[in-house]
Amino acid sequence: MTFPQHSPPPRRVSPGGRSWARWIVVAAGLAVLVVSLIAAVGPYRQTTEFREMMACERSGGGCFGAEGGTIADRRTYTTTETTTHTDADGRTRTSTRTITHHEITWQRADGTRQARDVDARFYAKAEEGLATLRLWRGEVVGVEVAGGAAWFPPEVKGSLAYWLYLAFIGLGVLLWGLLPVRWDGVLMLAYRAFCWTAMGFLPVHMAADALAGNLGTGLALTAEIVGCLLIAAITGTMLVRSLTRRRP
Rank of each mutant, 00 (worst) to 15 (best):
T94V: 15
V26F: 02
A40I: 08
I24S: 07
T83H: 08
T237D: 15
V13A: 07
W20S: 02
F64K: 09
L171I: 11
R137W: 03
M199I: 01
P154R: 10
Y191T: 03
W20V: 09
H205R: 14
R116D: 07
M53V: 03
V25C: 04
T79A: 15
W136G: 05
V173P: 02
A31G: 05
G158Q: 09
Y162I: 13
R121K: 15
T76L: 03
R18N: 01
A131Q: 10
F3P: 05
A146G: 09
I71K: 06
I71T: 02
T112P: 10
G29S: 08
A232M: 08
T2P: 12
T83A: 03
E57L: 02
D89V: 02
G148P: 09
A88G: 12
S36T: 01
T112A: 08
A66Y: 12
H6D: 10
D184M: 14
E139H: 11
T100N: 05
V240M: 11
P8W: 05
F64I: 09
F122K: 09
R45N: 04
L130G: 08
F3R: 15
G147F: 07
Y165I: 11
W151Q: 03
L133Y: 03
E81A: 02
Y191G: 13
R121G: 10
S36V: 04
W151T: 13
Y165K: 06
R134A: 00
A233F: 10
K157I: 04
L178N: 08
T96K: 11
S36A: 14
L174H: 06
Q5Y: 09
V141E: 05
R74K: 10
G129V: 08
W136S: 04
R121L: 15
R121F: 12
T47E: 05
W163N: 02
D89A: 06
E139N: 03
L30T: 13
M188Q: 15
L130I: 03
I99S: 01
G111E: 11
L178Q: 07
G172M: 07
H205G: 01
L175S: 05
Y44K: 08
T197I: 02
C195W: 09
V13Y: 10
T237F: 14
R241C: 04
F194I: 10
G17H: 14
Y123T: 03
V204G: 00
Y162M: 13
T100Y: 13
W183E: 01
G68K: 06
I99E: 00
E52C: 07
W196V: 02
C228D: 05
T48C: 08
A66P: 00
L175R: 09
M54C: 04
A40E: 05
A31R: 11
V156P: 04
G172V: 00
G68M: 07
I24C: 09
E139D: 12
